[in-house]
Every structure is written in C-alpha cells, then in structure tokens.
Amino acid sequence: MGNHVLVIEDEPNIVEAIRFILMRDGWDVSTLSDGDRAEDTIRSRRPDVVILDVMLPGRSGLEILAALRADAATRSLPVLMLTAKGQGRDRAEAERIGASQFMSKPFSNTEILASVRALAGV
C-alpha cells in the first residue's frame, strides 16, 4: 500500500493544515492550487488518495472529478471531496459523479485523517 496523497485546494492556509496533519501521520503529500494540471500530475505520479476542493479557480472540483471518472485509469481512484458551501445539492452532485467521500469544511483533523486512511485501505 502506498502513502501518497494529492491535495488540490486553492486556500493556502487550508493546504498547509492538511499537509501538516497528513505528513505527521507519515503520508507523502503533494499539492496543487488549481485543477488545470490535475490529470497530468496524477498521470505522472499516481496518488493513493486525492483530496479535491469543489470551488477552485478555473476548472471546478466537480469538473475534475468527472474527467477522472471518465478515464479508465483513474475510474477507481479514491477521491475525497471538500466543500465550504455546505449545501446538500453539492453533495448529491458529487456523489452522482462518483466521489468516494464528501466532507464539509470545517472538518476535524482526526476525521480527515481517518477518511484518508480508510480510502487508502490502510
């Protein structure tokens, strides 16, 4: 089992928090601040879990998820969706497109860590 997590999130402080939490637990964390290069990044180095924000500059998180699910290589890649809008509509949309898990901001540290572990099958 690998331990590589890709975080796609545009809020620098949130990225820093997630990175701190995961790295302390022994995960290898790489980050992207927008979704433009998401597929390239994943293809060049496949992560075990992707943490994906819904509201991103440029392509939205839901568009990226749809693209990942359309590609056979990434169809089963575990994706944890994060959103700050907190509306049921986003959650339903994300689950329809194929998010592995959906989490509202703000989250608790243990919660996100547990989710990443579960998704990675650790």
């Binding site: 809020e11 700050a84 509202s104 901001k105 703000p106």
Partner: peptide
C-alpha cells in the same frame, strides 16, 4: 467556512 476551516 473557509477561514474557519483553517482556524479549526
């Protein structure tokens, strides 16, 4: 929620 996420 965005700043609160960092704060929490």
């Amino acid at each position: 929620r965005t700043p609160m996420t960092s704060i929490r």
